[in-house]
Every structure is written in C-alpha cells, then in structure tokens.
C-alpha cells in the first residue's frame, strides 16, 4: 500500500508540472487584465523548439533556452494583438492556439519528419532531502523542470503580493484608470505579464518534450493548455490555490491509472472521467466563495476622455 501511495504521489507531481508553469503564467497575465486562450499553442511551440534544439545539439539547457525565446516571441505577439491592437481577447487567443498548433506541426513535419526520442533531463536527487523516507522519494528525486515548476509557486506569490511590481500588476487588472492616474504604465505592465506568461507556457511545453516525455508529436499537448486556463479560474487567481487545483487534478488522474493497473473492477470509462468529475464537484462546492475575476479582465485599456 505504501508503495502505491508513493507511486501515486510521484505520478501526480510529474503530471502537475506542465500545468503549473502554464497556469501560473496565465494567472499573472489575467491579473493584469489580459485573458490569453492561446496557451496550448505556445506550449506546442515551446515543446517543439526545445525538442528540435536538443535533437540537433544534444544540449538540454540550449533546448530550454529555445523554448524560453520562442515563448517570449509568442508572448510579444499576444501582447501586441491584445494590448496594442486591442483585439477581442477570447477570439484572438483561439487564433494564437490554432497558429501554434499548425506551425509546430508544420515545422515538425518539414524539419524532423518522424517521431524520434531524445534523452531529456534526468532525475536529480537533492542531497539530504532525497533520503527523507517517503517524502524524499516522492518530491526530491524528480527532474529539474519539476523542481522549477514548484519553486515558481512561492516566487510568483511573493512577487504578486509583496513587491511594488505585484501591486502594479494587480492594480492594472482591477482599476486601470486609477493605476494610470498614479502614473503606472499600463501598456508596459501588460506587455511584461503577457511575455512572462508566454515564457512560462514555452517552458511548460519543454517540460513535456525534453523532461517528462522526451518525444515530440503533432499536438503533443493534447489540449493541456486549456485545462491550464481552467485551473486559473479554479485557483481564483492565487498561485497557492492554482497549485492545489493542479495537484488535485493530477492526483485523481494518477489514482485512476493505479486503479486500472491494480485491476480493480471499475470500468475504465468511469475512472477516466474521475479527474473531471472531482474538479467539477470541487468547483461547485467552492462557488459560494464568490471570488470575482480581475475587474478589467478581457477589457482593453482606453484612457478616459
């Protein structure tokens, strides 16, 4: 039983990793008032660029850098469309998703041609911590991108809640007019958050293609980016709650795999629904909390006449 629980939690930590990167990035963007539904497309581009770089150079860090650069470029594109051109955010995000899906598939077909595997980031035992019974095995023998995802939670919490930059980001998303009158550069803040979100989506993709799965295939993410956006709402725009949501979803997913492996007699169609059922139940239970999205979410900023 102990081995199974360790197995489930280890799986859950791995499964949660790409969601954490993408959801934290999306959280910060949304807090500044920009809804980006193109996360999945940026993840695919990040996944492909990291994979291709590692395939050609064998250098994992260069692969990660490629995902960061491509993610930033996509972030810049999204910011330009939404902040400068003031496009309808929901629709433009879907456009970015389809663009990223199509471009990553095209580049894969022309530059790689067939599914191949690479050697990704190996598990990295953290000295001392990895020897703690049970906990060590679950948390401290993962690969470096897993650690990065979990480190991101307190870092983003600190930036958002304890720094002037965080205050500006939240002000821009809640009361852009007030922030503007206090001299906060709204356009600059929104570009910053969206580009940062793009970078994190890129890393989310890389965490799949060069750390967890070590392959690339067309549509590798299979819609993960949309679940990442849902987790932002689930987590009510708070990094710690986003983490809770990601872990809950991943743990239930890991449990359903174990239920099947152990041959427990529940139809697989039902076990596969479990992560989604649990998520919906929790969301419904929490509906009472009355947490509202950032007031200026989805609204381009127009300086008052």
């Amino acid at each position: 039983m102990e081995a199974i629980i360790i197995g489930i939690l280890k799986s859950a930590i791995r499964l949660a990793t790409p969601y954490l990167y993408a959801s934290i990035g999306e959280t910060i963007g949304q807090l500044s008032g920009v809804l980006n539904l193109g996360v999945d497309g940026v993840m695919l581009m990040g996944a492909f660029s990291a994979f291709y770089t590692v395939l050609k150079t064998g250098n994992l860090w260069l692969g990660l850098l490629a995902a960061i650069v491509v993610g930033a470029i996509f972030g810049l594109l999204i910011a330009f469309i939404n902040v400068t051109l003031k496009a309808e955010q929901g629709i433009s995000g879907i456009g970015v998703y389809i663009f990223g899906l199509g471009l990553s598939s095209l580049l894969f077909s022309t530059m790689v041609g067939t599914v191949q595997t690479v050697s990704g980031f190996p598990p990295l035992s953290i000295p001392l911590f990895s020897n703690i019974p049970i906990m060590g095995e679950i948390f401290f023998r993962q690969n470096i991108l897993v650690y990065g995802a979990f480190a991101l939670v307190p870092i983003s919490w600190f930036i958002l809640n304890k720094t002037p930059l965080g205050l500006s980001i939240r002000a821009v998303g809640q009361h852009p007019e007030a922030a503007d009158s206090l001299g906060v550069n709204i356009v600059r803040i929104r570009y910053l958050t969206v580009i940062f979100g793009g970078i994190l989506s890129g890393i989310a993709g890389a965490s799949l293609s060069i750390a967890l799965l070590n392959v690339f295939q067309q549509n590798l993410t299979n819609g993960m980016g949309f679940i990442a956006v849902a987790l932002v709402y689930f987590g009510a725009w708070r990094p710690l709650s986003v983490l809770t949501g990601a872990l809950l979803f991943s743990t239930v997913n890991a449990i359903q795999i174990w239920v099947q492996v152990k041959g427990i007699n529940i139809p697989s169609d039902f076990t596969l629904m479990l992560p989604y059922i649990v998520t919906i139940v929790v969301l419904a239970a929490m509906a009472k909390r009355r947490i509202h999205p950032p007031a200026a979410l989805n609204k381009p900023f127009e300086r008052g006449e």
Binding site: R14, L213, Q260, S268
Partner: peptide
C-alpha cells in the same frame, strides 16, 4: 495489468501509465 487511456493521442497520460506499470 491493462490500462486504457481514453484517447488515441494523449501522449502524457500514456507516458504516466507506463511509469505506473513499471512501478507496479
């Protein structure tokens, strides 16, 4: 041990199922 992924394309879940089988 048999696991069904519920999808023809979910590479991440297939990978995690493989990890679980080996752990088992």
């Amino acid at each position: 041990n048999v696991t069904w992924i519920g999808s023809y394309s979910d590479v991440a879940l297939a990978s995690e199922a493989a990890q679980t089988h080996i752990d088992a």
